[in-house]
Design a binder for these strands. Structure first.
Length: 868
RNA sequence: GCGCGUUUAGCUCAGUUGGUUAGAGCGUCUCGUUUACACCGAGAAGGUCGGGGGUUCAAAUCCCUCAGCGCGCACCA
């Protein structure tokens, strides 16, 4: 073993060894059929780019849970895959070919573009899978899936057909969010908002119209068919119901004055021009009032034909002309700058145009027989409310429910080329919906593709063999064995986008939940708390970090110091710190393996020293705590406890003691703790632990070793005596450091209260040897000491007085004592007051009162001694 | 506008149902080249737990309120 641990030399080899072993696949674990299963389906990364730190966090957390359960004896399946990310991928490729060749997708044509996309996809997909392996992820590659492979195509088509036949999928005309750049619809939550300044124009449609309206989009007013006012608004009450026929910029409009409670009397003039075709709210008003729907803007973002000079102009051009005309006709009252939230496409940033369009929808409100006559929405709410699905952290349940309750029908068709084709075929007036294209001629398929979340919504069961494994409403094969899965672990930002869809899709297809728990991790921010992004250049590349510090260090930096659902900051320094820890673990193992003959004998643990008992107690309690923390998803705390034990207790104390305190069983204890410590660490840092395990030359892989069990024999040992010795040693070290006792003037004598003489005498060697710089040592009773002696340093540890002979700096010591006295007086004052309080005495638990009383006594003796 | 989160040491963050003197890592300072490790060891300094009020014998923890920061949803004519 090298002096320092160099991850590059080992990681790839170890990963290959794991993969070859076949144990990533639960079928090879040789477990009984009754062994419980534990399944996580990996959230498939988009194949648009390489791995980022969010993925690393996801992989670290999931691999931790997976490896832990595998070692605990579960049939553990972690199923990998990638997502075709329809719009995102097509955009990425379109950008690429435009940059490289200056051509658009329309120049290229559908077939060629798809060819390009598949070429691109193969590359990025391979990169992502290679990078996932670099993280040490123990995924079952034999079950790998892609959201757009043959099996998933089959599942998606079947799902569409089933939903269509159940009347859940329908085609309808609605206002949709249209991205003129992507030429496609977007779902409500695919929209982002950007705050910006906008101009609010106040004007009259024409001279003969009675009042002024205000709008930020004058060009849409060409399609107004009504004007809405608040029914309570006294200014306009008398106009309600009237109809005006006017000319607005030479375009004839027929406007009905309607009342609507949602009109804000204080915004603008309190009058709202209703444009049913280009506003979601106005569409609703149109439905309620039977208004005519007049389309103004087409799918190119241009004005339709039939609007005179405006036709074929862009919205911006049209707006300019209208403003000019209004000014000429003296109809423009004023302009005001306001803050406005612009809707933009989450992919390309172009501003969204709401337009009416014929699209495919999934109804969330239609009652479904096989769901007990409940709708998808109702059922999806029910499973969360009844806690069939639990959220970690819990607060996300509320966010999920809020979103679900306000959910509208989900528009699933997209006007892009890359994606799942819609299994709908047309022939003149006929329509056919089926998994396979009808054999007779002249059928053409629906040109649209499906929203990428449609296929990823089916991810938990499409990967487990649905629909083949689901005949006559009965699960079989993998689907029977592994569904519902135990946990879905993902970033909270896709809670609504993805998690909710998965729940609805699974409920519809299988009438069961897709997962029992949803664990949501936070975002990884840079060290200034900013989101990492390519454009800002503040991103940390995980692969780069793995090369520099090793995968284990990267994993630890994701797991320790962050809590579920909260964002966390990451810096190179943090990762570097964990690399140091890994090196420490490496050296602990190196020391033990080179100094200790390691063989697991049947040790009886009979001649144990204080230190032996102490470390065995600590270790067995550690196992208990780790189990507890992992059960509660407190990964960070589990990691910190492990680190504390490994570094502070095991390395700094026990290993040091083992260098001189020899007894028969020491080797066995060292070896026992090392072996089991490696097991506890394995889910966190699989590489280094496995490499050390291989150095021990065991025949098995650590990956499939049994998780350590707690030995109750040691958990209840009293370790107070060792703690006392530890404190004495610390106090001596402290005195050395604080008072600068010169090495030449050696401490020879410890004088203490009678009660402890025997204990300290017995552990004299320990005290001498543990970096206290003491060669000779005699222990005396405290009644013998001359406290007036200048050379005496008095240390009080709990109720033990210790006098160290030979102090150099008297003043410093006095200052220290004075400070301590003040502290003690304060504590005693507070304690006395507390103990005089009758309510405390009567109401607080007896042990706590007792505790306080003892404490008071202790402080008082300590104070007395100090004041001497 | 509604909702959620957050505010703890110089920095980054823990703190599990209220209960010893509020913890860790990094940073700072002091000392130390003892053959596992200088990617090390031994110590120290540093906090009125965002402000105010309340409940309780007891509050970082529960309630109210105010403020800063972040996020989600809605509005956006």
């Amino acid at each position: 073993m090298d002096k320092t641990y160099n991850p590059q030399n080992y990681e790839d080899k170890i990963y290959q060894k794991w993969e070859k072993s076949g144990f990533f696949n639960p079928d090879n674990l040789n477990l009984s059929k009754n062994a419980p299963t534990y399944t996580i389906i990996l959230p498939p990364p988009n194949i648009t780019a390489k791995l980022h730190l969010g993925h690393s966090a996801m992989l670290a957390i999931e691999d931790l849970m997976i490896r832990y359960h595998r070692m605990k004896g579960y049939q553990t399946l972690w199923l990998p895959g990638t997502d075709h990310a329809a719009i995102a991928t097509q955009n990425a490729v379109e950008k690429k070919i435009f940059k490289e060749r200056g051509i658009t997708r329309h120049d290229l044509g559908k077939e060629k573009l798809l060819e390009e996309i598949w070429k691109f996809l193969k590359q990025t997909q391979a990169t992502i899978l290679r990078q996932t392996r670099k993280m040490g992820a123990s995924l079952d590659w034999s079950r790998e899936a892609f959201t757009l492979d043959e099996q998933r195509k089959k599942a998606v088509a079947q799902m569409f057909v089933d939903m269509y036949e159940a009347g859940i999928i329908y085609k309808g005309e609605r206002i949709v969010n249209w991205c003129p750049r992507c030429h496609s619809t977007l779902a409500d939550d695919e929209i982002e908002y950007k705050e910006q300044k906008a101009i609010l124009y106040f004007f009259k449609y024409s001279k003969d119209f009675p009042f002024i309206i205000a709008t930020t989009r004058p060009e849409t007013k060409l399609g107004d068919t009504a004007v809405a006012v608040n029914p309570k608004d006294k200014r306009y009450k008398k106009y309600i119901g009237k109809i005006y026929k006017i000319n607005f910029c030479e375009i004839p409009l027929k406007l009905k004055i309607i009342a609507n409670r949602e009109v804000d009397m204080n915004f603008g003039t309190g009058v709202l021009g209703v444009t049913p075709a280009h506003s979601m709210a106005d569409w609703k008003m149109a439905e309620e009032n039977n208004l005519e729907i007049k389309k103004v803007i087409n799918e190119e973002g241009k004005i339709y034909k039939g609007f005179n000079e405006f036709s074929n102009k862009t919205t911006t051009q049209a707006r300019e002309i209208i403003i000019k005309k209004l000014k000429e006709q003296n109809l423009l009252e004023k302009q005001e700058e306001i803050n406005n939230n612009l809707s933009i496409c989450y992919r390309c940033g172009a501003s969204i145009e709401p337009l009416p369009s014929k699209q495919w929808f999934i109804s969330v409100d239609k009652k479904i027989k096989k769901l007990g006559n409940k709708s998808l929405k109702e059922k999806a709410i029910e499973v969360a409310e009844k806690e069939e699905i639990k959220f970690i952290p819990e607060r996300f349940k509320k966010r999920y429910l809020d979103w679900m309750e306000n959910l509208r029908d989900w528009c699933i068709s997209r006007q892009i080329w890359f994606g799942h084709e819609i299994p709908v075929y047309y022939r003149k007036q006929e329509i056919y919906v089926g998994v396979k294209k009808p054999e007779s001629k002249n059928w053409t398929q629906d040109p649209d593709t499906l929203d990428t979340w449609f296929s990823s919504g089916m991810w938990t069961f499409s990967t487990l063999g649905w629909p083949d494994n689901f005949k006559k409403n009965k699960k079989s094969g993998d689907l029977l064995k592994f569904h519902p899965t135990q946990i879905l672990e993902t970033g909270y930002e896709i809670l609504t986008l993805w998690v909710s869809r998965m729940i609805m899709m699974s409920l519809f297809a299988l009438q069961e939940i897709p997962f029992e728990n949803v664990y949501l991790h936070g975002m990884i921010l840079d060290k200034n708390g900013k989101k990492m992004s390519k454009s800002k250049g503040n991103g940390i590349d995980p692969i780069n970090m793995i090369e520099k510090f090793g995968a284990d260090a990267v994993r630890l930096s994701m797991l320790i110091g962050s809590t579920p659902g909260n964002d966390s900051r990451l810096s190179e320094e943090k990762i570097e710190g964990f690399k140091k820890f890994i090196n420490k673990l490496w050296n602990i193992a190196r020391y033990i393996l080179s100094n200790v003959k390691c063989q697991m004998l049947n040790v009886k643990y009979q001649n144990l020293t204080l230190a032996d008992e102490w470390i065995l107690n600590k270790f067995n309690n550690l196992i208990k705590k780790i189990n507890d923390d992992l059960k509660k998803y407190n990964f960070s705390q589990a990691g910190e406890k492990l680190r504390k034990f490994t570094w502070d207790d095991f390395a700094d104390w026990y290993l040091e003691i083992s260098k001189f305190e020899k007894n028969e069983e020491k080797n066995e204890i060292l070896f026992y703790i090392l072996k089991n410590l490696l097991k506890l660490w394995h889910p966190f840092i699989p590489f280094v632990t496995e490499i050390i395990w291989q150095e021990i030359k065991t025949n098995n892989l650590l990956m499939i070793e049994k998780w350590p069990t707690v030995s109750n024999k040691f958990t209840n040992i009293n370790i107070d005596n060792f703690e006392i010795i530890k404190n004495i040693i610390s106090a001596i070290r402290n005195a050395r450091s604080e008072n600068k006792i010169e090495p030449s003037k050696k401490i020879k004598t410890i004088i203490c209260t009678e009660k402890y003489v025997a204990l300290i005498e017995k552990n004299k060697e320990l005290i001498k040897n543990l970096k206290t710089n003491i060669n000779e040592l005699e222990i005396k009773k405290s009644c013998d000491v001359k406290t007036q002696d200048d050379r005496v340093i008095r240390i009080i540890i709990d109720d033990i007085e210790i006098y160290l002979i030979d102090a150099k700096d008297k003043e410093k010591e006095q200052a220290r004592i004075n400070k301590k006295i003040i502290e003690l007086e304060k504590l005693i004052f507070n304690l006395k007051r507390k103990l005089l309080n009758k309510e405390f005495i009567n109401k607080a638990p007896a042990n706590i009162v007792e505790n306080e009383k003892e404490k008071l006594k202790l402080y008082q003796t300590e104070l007395k001694n100090l004041k001497l």
